[in-house]
Design a protein around this nucleic acid. Structure first.
Lengths: 334, 334
DNA sequence: GTGAAAGCGCTAACAG
DNA sequence: CTGTTAGCGCTTTCAC
């Protein structure tokens, strides 16, 4: 029924291995036979079977995308589609396929990850989140599965790509201070997230350097990364205490707070945040300054790093961990 | 090196085929041997190789996700991650894997799709967009690849899931008219998109029924589905002509226009749109009413329909096309 | 209930 | 440059 490599071999009077080599565009094959074989392949509508190929070569040319446990906070954040687009782009160029790690619950996610790794479905992984105690990461590491993490995990040796969070938070804070802010608040959301810690560090450093001290209760945590908590917080707290400027570690929290500020007729240019991407045409509209984290590039670089890791694993080179820093742009309409 | 089914067979004193049956939980195998074999599998850390399994069984248990050509408009829209989450959930439950159709350019996308189908990588496809002349869809159809489209393609027989666009646009328009709107504008964006046509139809019907007529130039097209064009349009056009209410076919265009209205101190409750999801806590914040399209459910149902199609393909049942309508909720804080 | 044997469609030494 | 020969690890008749 299906036309296989053997059919092509017979029809073009060569051996199956020759056909295989033609498919791989092996330089050892003469141009003449290549053309002949290709012609036959076209005539017979031959198409290589990926499963057979993967089995025989023990290479899947597929990478797994590992998502955190499903939550609104993750799926509502522009980070996810943006970074995925970047990964997609790089994977496509390198002829790699992307397999999504499905699964809502924690156990399911681990099961799926095991399927991927132990079932030889993927050659490597990209983690779209960084979490220190993550059982999925632990498992992947324990299996020596090549991987790259988007984010930072101090003390854990992994390949990773990330923005320079302390530096951008520092600059963002400096921006507000230079404009004259004295009583700043930092809205972190979840202090267990490494990027929150790092942005807080940058914030604190800028404060300290400017001789400003952190008022009691000026650091807000325990907020899911969504719009409504930002909105609620702004109405309930921030705008009642006499803060004069705000650094939001998360884009969605910032957006919620922005709504509240608009409603109350407050000037949003006293807040700053970090976004997955920027719409250049939107420059004049954005009510507040932010860092464009270039999340698409983050994804693209993550895939590039993984490809490098995969290549060096093959050449059995030394095991050096790669860290790729992705730059960010400060966007302000002042 | 790797422990295979044969090793298990030897170690537990049965035939490879028996081990295979144990993996599949075949009822023909006695409980006793099942347990014995499973014990050995655990002891030896056996894990089935998916590529071998897929090759031998000629079933991939994988579905391909087909995305439109990469564009900001697609990746910036909450529709994509939301619908993907729903697909993910259903796929996970059914033990299906998801393969993303990578590719930026049109030719690349087609190539990848061919790889997926002809290379036997997927059993079916979910199209995250509906486009009449789409070469990818044409190709998939020509190969009789089981598929479901999210959206509508009148005149083309395909399995699909969708919202009832005419009905919700009708209701949205009615809402504005009941409130007293007389001069309404419809901001479509791209009239080639089927959902825009359908929402326009619902809009027009409501207008007609109310005895209102469409002013010249009251239908806006040729706008990318992004925030900034919505913003620009609102500032440049909408708010200068004396429209008193607006129906936005697209969420992002609406968001842009909303910014403009806020800046100009206008009441946004005279606009209405359609969103991928709603944040229940955000009810009081939202400045304008909208339909929640339940895009996550759209994705979930799409996967369910595909599973049905796959099942009935196996049973060689009659070829009936499935249409699954997903309900939407009107969200308004009035 | 279980085993033997024949593939699934391709790759990869090893020859020549 | 090309052919021969073994597999890759699993599923699936068909026997018994």
């Amino acid at each position: 029924m299906t036309v296989t490599i053997k059919d092509i071999a017979k029809a073009s009077g060569v051996a199956p291995s020759t056909v295989s080599r033609v498919i791989a565009d092996n330089p050892a094959i003469s141009q003449a036979t290549k053309e002949k074989v290709r012609q036959v392949m076209a005539d017979l509508h031959y198409y290589p079977n990926y499963n057979a190929r993967r089995l025989a070569s023990r290479k899947s040319r597929t990478v797994g995308i590992v998502l955190p446990a499903a939550s609104d906070a993750f799926y509502h954040n522009p980070f996810f589609p943006t970074v995925l687009r970047g990964i997609n782009e790089a994977a496509s160029q390198a002829q790699y396929a992307l397999l999504l790690s499905t699964g809502e619950g924690d156990q399911t996610r681990l099961d799926h990850l095991q399927n991927m790794i132990l079932g030889k479905q993927v050659e490597g992984l990209i983690f779209l989140y960084a979490s220190r105690e993550d059982p999925l990461l632990q498992f992947a590491l324990s299996q020596d599965c090549p991987l790259v993490v988007i984010g930072n995990l101090p003390g854990i040796d992994v390949n990773r790509v990330d923005n320079d969070n302390p530096a951008i938070a520092y600059q963002a804070t400096r921006h507000l201070i230079k404009r004259g802010a004295k009583k700043l608040a930092f809205i972190g959301g979840d202090p267990k997230q490494q990027f929150v810690k790092e942005r807080l560090a940058g914030f604190s450093q800028a404060m300290e350097e400017a001789g400003l001290d952190l008022a009691d209760g000026a650091v807000y945590n325990d907020l899911p990364f969504l719009q409504s908590p930002g909105y609620e917080l702004a109405r309930r707290e921030l705008l009642k205490k006499d803060f004069d400027a705000f650094v939001f570690a998360d884009q969605l929290l910032a957006e919620g707070a922005y709504q509240a500020m608009r409603q109350l007729g407050l000037d949003p240019s006293w807040m700053v945040t970090f976004k997955a991407y920027s719409d250049p045409d939107l420059g004049q509209i954005e009510g507040y300054p932010y860092f464009d984290l270039h999340s698409q590039d983050l994804g693209y670089q993550a895939m590039q790093v993984l490809l490098e890791v995969l290549a060096q694993a093959e050449d059995a080179h030394c095991h050096r961990y790669i860290y790729q820093c992705v730059t960010s742009d400060f966007i302000s309409n002042e």
